[in-house]
Amino acid sequence: MDRAAEISAFLRSRRARLSPTELGAPFDGRVRRVPGLRREEVARLAGMSPDYYMRIEQGRGGAVSLEIIDSIALALRLDTVERNHLLNLCGTPTPHHTPGLEPQRVRPGLYDLLAVMESVPAIILGRRTDVLASNRLARALMTDFQALPAPHRNYARFILLDPKARELYQDWEQVSEQTTAMLHLDVGRFPDDRQLAELIRDLREGCPEFTRFWDNQNVHEKDQGEIRFNHPSGGEFVLHYQTLLVPGEADQSVCTYYGAPGSSSEAALARLAGLTTSSPTPA
């Protein structure tokens, strides 16, 4: 990945979404050719020289201190996820940053956990949204990741490239944009990940909407939320999801899906579980 290009694109996109008037900036009489804040306005809000901010935005700022990152984050009104993404892009890693790119393995106890979660779809996500493991109900809900070639066992690849996903997710564009934003986080964390670069290339070539999603420069952590499904066997229902980090395992998380207690969605998921009989196995 071109780190300088990523820094530039991200900061320009964050500038463009802000209105000078909402930040209380006085009108200077000049016609604005592009939306949002100018570089010198960001520099003034962040308490630094315009030249220094310009070098940072162009990826020429060298080692950027945490204090400078925080000043820019405050000026651009970045949330916590966006701030940490900027830290990673500028080479100032967050406490959870892990530079190694060794192959990821799922410990046996997590496979046992998936095995006993018979009524809850669950997947274990790794770097670049690789699906490291899945239980039987998750495969019935989404796709049989185990049946795919190992390089294709990837959540983003399924969402954006599998035609079935467009039918499965009622709000496919929203899910796809959030998934793309998850990949943006990994670009900051792992700029030298060749497999991530290849995945992004494949998504650009295979999904007409991906470039638009990518150019938005949004970042997102898959933490919690809800998704509306239109399942070929289970019909329409809404599932909530919760994502839990795996202690002691860098860049691994368990993502679970469930219907609200007592809801028709919970009943639909139970019916789908009744249609599945195979045992949970590694993805």
Rank of each mutant, 00 (worst) to 15 (best):
residue 78 L to D: 01
residue 92 T to C: 14
residue 98 T to C: 13
residue 80 T to L: 10
residue 96 H to V: 09
residue 76 L to T: 07
residue 88 N to D: 15
residue 92 T to A: 15
residue 96 H to I: 07
residue 98 T to Y: 09
residue 72 I to K: 06
residue 94 T to E: 06
residue 80 T to M: 03
residue 82 E to R: 01
residue 75 A to N: 08
residue 78 L to F: 02
residue 96 H to P: 00
residue 102 E to K: 11
residue 103 P to C: 12
residue 92 T to S: 15
residue 78 L to P: 02
residue 76 L to Y: 05
residue 87 L to C: 15
residue 80 T to F: 05
residue 86 L to W: 03
residue 70 D to M: 00
residue 71 S to V: 02
residue 77 R to L: 12
residue 93 P to F: 09
residue 74 L to E: 11
residue 99 P to Q: 09
residue 103 P to I: 14
residue 103 P to W: 12
residue 82 E to I: 09
residue 78 L to S: 05
residue 75 A to M: 06
residue 98 T to G: 03
residue 104 Q to K: 09
residue 72 I to F: 05
residue 73 A to G: 08
residue 90 C to N: 05
residue 99 P to F: 09
residue 70 D to H: 07
residue 77 R to S: 11
residue 87 L to S: 14
residue 89 L to Q: 11
residue 100 G to L: 06
residue 70 D to K: 00
residue 82 E to F: 08
residue 82 E to Q: 15
residue 84 N to F: 02
residue 91 G to F: 05
residue 100 G to V: 07
residue 74 L to W: 00
residue 79 D to E: 07
residue 75 A to Q: 04
residue 78 L to G: 05
residue 76 L to K: 06
residue 100 G to Y: 01
residue 74 L to Q: 14
residue 92 T to Q: 13
residue 101 L to D: 05
residue 103 P to N: 14
residue 103 P to G: 11
residue 98 T to E: 13
residue 76 L to I: 11
residue 102 E to F: 02
residue 83 R to H: 12
residue 84 N to C: 10
residue 104 Q to R: 07
residue 83 R to D: 00
residue 97 H to G: 00
residue 80 T to R: 13
residue 80 T to Q: 13
residue 82 E to M: 01
residue 76 L to M: 03
residue 70 D to F: 02
residue 70 D to C: 02
residue 101 L to P: 07
residue 90 C to G: 03
residue 79 D to K: 04
residue 81 V to D: 05
residue 75 A to Y: 01
residue 98 T to F: 11
residue 100 G to H: 10
residue 73 A to H: 04
residue 82 E to Y: 06
residue 80 T to V: 12
residue 84 N to Y: 03
residue 75 A to F: 03
residue 104 Q to I: 02
residue 81 V to L: 00
residue 83 R to Y: 02
residue 73 A to P: 02
residue 88 N to H: 15
residue 91 G to C: 06
residue 79 D to W: 08
residue 81 V to I: 14
residue 85 H to Y: 15
residue 71 S to N: 14
residue 95 P to A: 13
residue 94 T to M: 07
residue 96 H to F: 06
residue 70 D to E: 12
residue 84 N to L: 10
residue 99 P to I: 09
residue 88 N to E: 15
residue 101 L to K: 08
residue 77 R to K: 14
residue 100 G to E: 12
residue 70 D to I: 00
residue 92 T to P: 01
residue 80 T to G: 11
residue 92 T to M: 07
residue 96 H to S: 15
residue 103 P to T: 15
residue 81 V to K: 01
residue 92 T to I: 01
residue 94 T to F: 01
residue 95 P to F: 08
residue 77 R to M: 10
residue 87 L to V: 07
residue 94 T to G: 04
residue 90 C to L: 15
residue 104 Q to L: 04
residue 88 N to L: 07
residue 86 L to V: 06
residue 77 R to F: 03
residue 94 T to Q: 03
residue 86 L to Q: 06
residue 93 P to D: 08
residue 80 T to K: 09
residue 90 C to E: 04
residue 74 L to S: 11
residue 71 S to H: 11
residue 95 P to Q: 10
residue 92 T to K: 06
residue 70 D to R: 08
residue 91 G to Q: 01
residue 95 P to G: 13
residue 94 T to W: 00
